[in-house]
Amino acid sequence: MLQPGKLTDDEYKVMKTHSEKGYRLASLLPEISCISRKILTHHERWDGLGYPLGLQKYEIHILSRIVYVVDSFECYSKGRSIQEAIGEFKRCSGSQFDPQIVRVFTQIILKRNLDFFHK
């Protein structure tokens, strides 16, 4: 459920547990247990300020870095044009997000004109 405005500290703590819950669930399922750690780390930041482990740069598996960018795109594009959302991604490139993934992802979005997020 999307909530307008900022989360309280308690709400943010609860929200941050979803990576660990996803990890535990995936670990129990043999069909997807091989990606359980990628699920756990999909909110790690390029600069090391993410959660839950505080990994940075190439300590974070590439699949986790990709999922973080793709997952964040919907939030960044809410109420913004594609160009504005891409501008925000570029601003956070190198801190929050892997700059190479941002570059490739934004090229794909622009090339395909993926405006379906605004419908």
Results as ranks from 00 to 15, higher is better:
residue 1 M to W: 11
residue 1 M to I: 13
residue 2 L to H: 12
residue 2 L to V: 07
residue 2 L to E: 04
residue 4 P to M: 07
residue 4 P to F: 03
residue 5 G to K: 04
residue 5 G to W: 06
residue 6 K to F: 11
residue 7 L to W: 08
residue 8 T to D: 09
residue 10 D to F: 13
residue 10 D to E: 14
residue 10 D to N: 13
residue 11 E to R: 09
residue 12 Y to M: 13
residue 12 Y to F: 13
residue 13 K to P: 00
residue 14 V to F: 04
residue 15 M to G: 06
residue 15 M to C: 06
residue 15 M to F: 11
residue 17 T to F: 02
residue 18 H to D: 06
residue 18 H to Q: 09
residue 18 H to E: 05
residue 20 E to C: 09
residue 24 R to A: 14
residue 24 R to P: 07
residue 24 R to Y: 11
residue 25 L to H: 07
residue 25 L to G: 05
residue 25 L to E: 04
residue 25 L to Y: 05
residue 26 A to T: 04
residue 27 S to L: 10
residue 28 L to C: 12
residue 29 L to Y: 06
residue 30 P to H: 12
residue 31 E to D: 04
residue 32 I to G: 04
residue 33 S to H: 08
residue 33 S to Q: 09
residue 35 I to C: 03
residue 35 I to S: 01
residue 38 K to C: 01
residue 38 K to M: 03
residue 38 K to N: 03
residue 38 K to W: 03
residue 39 I to E: 02
residue 42 H to T: 00
residue 42 H to F: 04
residue 44 E to P: 01
residue 45 R to M: 14
residue 46 W to F: 06
residue 46 W to M: 02
residue 47 D to G: 08
residue 47 D to H: 12
residue 48 G to R: 02
residue 48 G to W: 00
residue 48 G to S: 00
residue 48 G to A: 01
residue 51 Y to N: 11
residue 51 Y to R: 15
residue 53 L to Y: 01
residue 54 G to I: 05
residue 56 Q to D: 07
residue 56 Q to R: 11
residue 57 K to F: 04
residue 57 K to A: 05
residue 58 Y to H: 13
residue 60 I to Q: 00
residue 61 H to D: 01
residue 61 H to W: 02
residue 66 I to S: 02
residue 67 V to I: 06
residue 68 Y to P: 02
residue 72 S to Y: 00
residue 74 E to Y: 12
residue 75 C to S: 13
residue 78 K to V: 06
residue 78 K to R: 13
residue 81 S to K: 10
residue 81 S to N: 05
residue 82 I to R: 15
residue 83 Q to E: 10
residue 85 A to E: 05
residue 86 I to N: 02
residue 86 I to E: 02
residue 89 F to P: 00
residue 92 C to D: 14
residue 92 C to R: 14
residue 95 S to A: 13
residue 99 P to V: 11
residue 99 P to C: 09
residue 100 Q to M: 15
residue 100 Q to W: 11
residue 101 I to N: 08
residue 101 I to M: 09
residue 103 R to T: 12
residue 103 R to W: 09
residue 106 T to P: 00
residue 108 I to L: 09
residue 108 I to E: 10
residue 110 L to Y: 09
residue 110 L to I: 08
residue 111 K to F: 14
residue 111 K to C: 14
residue 112 R to Y: 15
residue 113 N to Q: 15
residue 114 L to F: 15
residue 114 L to H: 15
residue 114 L to E: 15
residue 116 F to V: 13
residue 116 F to H: 15
residue 119 K to Q: 10
residue 119 K to D: 01
